[in-house]
Write a protein that binds this DNA or RNA. Structure first.
Length: 246
DNA sequence: CGCATGGCCCTTA
DNA sequence: TTAAGGGCCATGC
């Protein structure tokens, strides 16, 4: 920051109400109902900063953000619907403390529609780091705002659901509640099928893509790899973009 | 086909 | 500064 900007900032502080200043430094927190039980949420004037379940909330927040934390009267506008519907709908997030890499990962995760899943490797490819698959897992594990950024929609390439901040079983409950057919995914994985194609459209998808779910059984073809699907004449779906995982 | 293993890359201690 | 390890993945029996 230049000296001029610093002086301007100081001047602004002098004219600001003290509580306005405080809210720029500190964070507020509330307990709210989430899709799988109560969660605690911290937020700043920039947006939602931290979502956590159960005990240890305050300690975890301070360890990570190092800011004072005060209880709020009521949840910020839009938080409850966002938690209920799995869509932000304009709710702002405060992601200032995350690294560039993590921000890319989180942004990619945000594009996964409700009721669908994508592999960790897909995220890695999507952000242009196709080999940073494990690092993607690490970044998602540190998602400061789970539920709001749907890291639970990222699952393993072999069809297993994978790990989750709130535990694998919660991940399953969440996905099932959102309408993802995990039993079907597992059934396909048992047959080594990770892609579904339609011979009427000539398109190949991830199994939970809404386009894949509408394929008539008679026209459905399963593939183990994208390369095999391509060899059979199918092109990757432009919605779920399976090309980016191969 | 289930399991082990080496590889990869970002983050933290 | 460096080394260790993690929400993974592709391979090799």
């Amino acid at each position: 920051m230049t000296e001029d900007r610093l002086l301007a900032g100081l001047a602004a502080l002098a004219t600001d109400a003290p509580d306005g200043l405080f809210d720029r430094i500190a964070a507020r927190w509330v307990r709210v109902p989430g899709p799988v039980g109560e969660v605690r949420v911290a937020y700043t004037d920039q947006g939602i900063a931290f979502v956590h379940d159960g005990p240890g909330f305050g300690a975890a927040f301070r360890a990570r953000f190092g800011r004072p934390l005060l209880p709020a009267e009521r949840p910020p506008a839009g938080l409850l619907p966002a938690l209920r519907t799995g869509r932000l709908n304009g709710l702002r997030l405060d992601l200032r403390d995350v690294s560039d890499f993590q921000r890319d990962v989180l942004r990619a995760a945000q594009t996964i529609p409700r009721g669908e899943v994508r592999p960790y490797a897909w995220i890695a490819a999507q952000i242009g780091r196709p080999r940073a698959v494990r690092a993607v897992g690490t970044a998602l594990a540190r998602n400061p705002v789970p539920l709001l950024i749907p890291c639970h929609r990222v699952t393993r390439s072999d069809g297993a659901v994978g790990e989750y901040v709130f535990g694998a079983s919660t991940k399953e409950r969440l996905l099932t509640a959102e309408g993802a057919d995990l039993d079907r995914v597992r059934e396909l994985a048992g047959e080594r099928v990770f892609y579904l194609a339609s011979d009427t459209t000539g398109v190949v998808c991830f199994p939970t893509c809404h386009n894949a779910r509408r394929i008539t059984p008679a026209h459905r073809h399963g593939f183990r790899t994208l390369a095999q699907a391509r060899a059979a004449g199918y092109r990757p779906c432009r919605v779920c973009k399976p090309a980016l995982a191969a």
